[in-house]
Design a protein around this nucleic acid. Structure first.
Length: 615
RNA sequence: GGCGGGGUAGCUCAGUUGGUAAGAGCGACGGAUUCAUAACCCGUAGGUCGGCGGUUCAAGUCCGCCCCCCGCCA
């Protein structure tokens, strides 16, 4: 059976995430994963926090807390946020964990080194003698050489749009101690991306993994496979125009995966003194978190080797595992260019296996030297704004998730987010739209369930009515929508999929109106019962179709039907067997409450007030 | 300045490889109905598909130029 390995971009453990992150990377992946769980696929949904890098050290130091303590806190915060909105991962790990993450990352590093995909290079960097450390971009400020603004940061100016080369700053100073840094030469290792495929059908290079990467690229980087926004970014822009170049993968920093964990001599040219100051660059180790978190999952299952079922492919079966990365458009380059290259270039020879074993004292997993699964697709979303502006915690332009959940059901947010998901262009969340979409769900879907169940409760003793003609409701259009819904989710078109769901509810409403059971109950109870029965039996179909999108609501409906367990996929559900004549229904109630104008107006006001107070 | 993405009914947007007289939801208007969360159902109005030119028997859909918005990079 085909396995699915679903990932969401690892959130950075340096602050809260917002609805934009949710709609871009977590919600679509969750829906995709839930759909596949529902139809019985073998699916693993992997995520975790990305916990290294300079911004974290800057902020942790500002707060005066340890790095680990700092990222642990945000890890829990982010996990709480996602859990609250119904995103259910199989595993949610942390990249700061030495085992397995640090070890696996070093393994990646060593294999790339053995395969000649990594090389050292001399670069110049600021060094602060007072603090006794190298200063990365964010640790140095000075006067902007472009606009003359003071306190320009080492990565970007506060005034003008210039991306700063920190070495060119006028009167640079260390942000920590204010002293003037000196310029030092330092060796960093770089990932050589020149071997990345030039085009579909091109010739691979001769280094290990080159052929696999090209073969993957030929399948992956096509108009048929990728969404238009992803295709143009990857192929037109990054590959054809900019051409992937070398990128540094080590830094002199005290927070990250230390190269000193490797034995002396494992990296030619790296002295123990240098190793003690170096860590892997955060962008390099972060995506490896997908793999290490899978190991974590397997370990929790009691069989660590099971991670191989998802990540390591047999020699000749490229399509055995469908690896799908969900993320926002800012992450397209990493996941379409850099990470696949890192994976493909893990393929190595006996000498490569031996050198890694020697350095790490026995291999971490049995994956050494074997072929990693490469992504089937990267269905990236565009950006999501809030009432016309970017979500921004610093500008106080955001919606507090705690306050949100006190008032509203997270499921109606999920519904709204899918309805307005930025699948092909930037979109935005507005409270007015949220109200409209929520009420749409309440009217078309929630109200249908209510009218049907209350009818049964009042006139049929809260049981599935018996007697009368069979199959009054034509199943063909329903089946078509169910099939269309599944195909749309599988093709990463969630808005279309949700359209199908709403259409099924509309079919139900239309049928109900045509049958006029409120009339027939007076003169033809059999016909009335048959109509209501047909409507009742549409409800488990709706519950199953709804579950990937609005799981808790779908489960509530399931309960109202007096059914056990969770909703099942409509395509594999026999509604008549599930709800036989005489079946006792559960307690009917309001499935989706509507939102009134004054509530929405209050939220809009609250949003603007908070932003104004912060200014 | 370069690149990318947008510019389709009042609003939010769909429109796969060019081809049945341009679609949906919301909003508006009219009708029907009363089982239901004043919900549902039926119908009407409304668009020179940013502008100009080209290719084609046929273009919102391909090509060229121009205008406006957003983003990334200079």
């Amino acid at each position: 059976m085909t396995r699915l390995l679903v990932t969401s971009a690892l959130p950075y453990a340096n602050g809260p995430i917002h609805f934009g992150h949710l709609v871009g990377a977590y919600l679509p992946a969750d829906i995709f994963a839930r759909y596949h769980r529902l139809i019985g696929s073998d699916v693993l949904f992997v995520c975790g926090t990305d916990e290294h890098g300079v911004p974290i050290t800057v902020n942790a130091e500002k707060e005066g807390v340890g790095y680990q303590e700092y990222v642990d806190r945000w890890h829990e915060e982010i996990r709480g946020f996602l859990t609250r909105f119904g995103v259910e991962f199989d595993v949610f790990g942390q990249t700061s964990r030495p085992d397995p993450h640090h070890r696996l990352s070093l393994e990646f590093f060593l294999r790339l080194l053995h395969n000649r995909r990594i090389a050292p290079r001399e670069v110049k960097q600021f060094y602060c003698a007072t603090c006794d450390r190298f200063l990365s971009d964010r640790y140095v400020e000075g006067t902007c050489y472009s606009c003359g603004a003071e306190r320009a940061r080492g990565d970007e100016c506060r005034q003008c749009p210039t991306l700063i080369d920190p070495l060119k700053l006028i009167d640079p100073y260390c942000v920590t101690c204010r002293s003037t840094p000196e310029t030092r030469s330092v060796t960093q290792w770089e990932l050589l991306l020149e071997g990345y495929p030039k085009r579909v059908g091109g010739a691979p290079d001769d280094l290990p993994g080159g052929k696999s990467l090209q073969e993957w690229f030929d399948r992956f980087a096509t108009r048929e496979n990728l969404k238009p926004n992803v295709y143009s970014t990857v192929v037109t822009k990054l590959v054809e125009q900019e051409k992937p170049r070398a990128r540094p993968i080590t830094r002199n920093l005290r927070w990250g995966i230390p190269l000193s964990a490797l034995p002396d001599g494992a990296v030619p040219g790296l002295t123990p003194e240098e190793a003690a100051e170096k860590v892997l660059y955060v962008w390099f180790d972060a995506p490896i978190g997908y793999c290490s978190n899978t190991i974590l999952w397997a370990r929790e299952q009691g069989d660590e080797a099971r991670w191989r079922e998802y990540w390591i492919r047999p020699d000749d079966a490229p399509g055995d595992v469908r690896l799908v990365h969900f993320l926002g458009k800012d992450n397209i380059p990493f996941h379409c260019i850099i990470f696949p290259a890192m994976l493909a270039w893990q393929e190595t020879d006996a000498a490569g296996i031996e050198s890694v074993e020697k350095a790490l004292g026995g291999v971490l997993g049995p994956g050494v030297g074997e072929r990693y699964v490469l992504p089937e697709n990267v269905p990236a979303n565009e950006f999501y704004n809030l009432e016309g502006r970017k979500f921004s915690t610093s500008d106080r332009w955001y919606i507090d998730p705690d306050e949100f959940c006190e008032q509203f059901d997270p499921d109606v947010l999920r519904f709204t987010l899918v309805r307005t998901m930025p699948e092909s262009a930037d979109t935005e969340f507005t409270w007015r739209e949220f109200q409209a979409r929520t009420n749409e769900l309440a009217d078309a879907f929630g109200n249908f369930a209510s009218r049907v169940l209350k009818f049964a409760e009042k006139y049929f003793d809260n049981r599935v009515p018996a007697g009368g003609a069979k199959d009054l409701l034509d199943p063909a259009p329903v089946d078509e929508h169910v099939a269309g819904l599944g195909a749309a989710i599988d093709g990463y078109r969630l808005r279309t999929a949700l359209d199908h769901f709403v259409d099924i509810a509309r079919l139900g409403n239309k049928f109900f109106d045509e049958q006029q059971p409120w009339k027939s109950r007076k003169d033809d109870l059999e016909a009335c019962g048959a109509a209501i029965r047909a409507c009742i039996r549409l409800l488990p179909v709706l519950a199953g179709a709804a579950w990937p999108f609005i799981p808790r609501t779908a489960e509530r409906l399931w309960e109202m039907l007096g059914l056990e367990g969770r909703p099942t996929w409509p395509g594999s559900t026999d509604a008549a067997a599930l709800l036989p004549e005489g079946h006792l229904l559960g307690e009917a109630g309001v499935l989706v409450p509507k939102i009134s104008d004054d509530v929405v107006a209050a939220e809009v006001e609250k949003l603007h007030r908070r932003a104004a107070e912060g200014a």
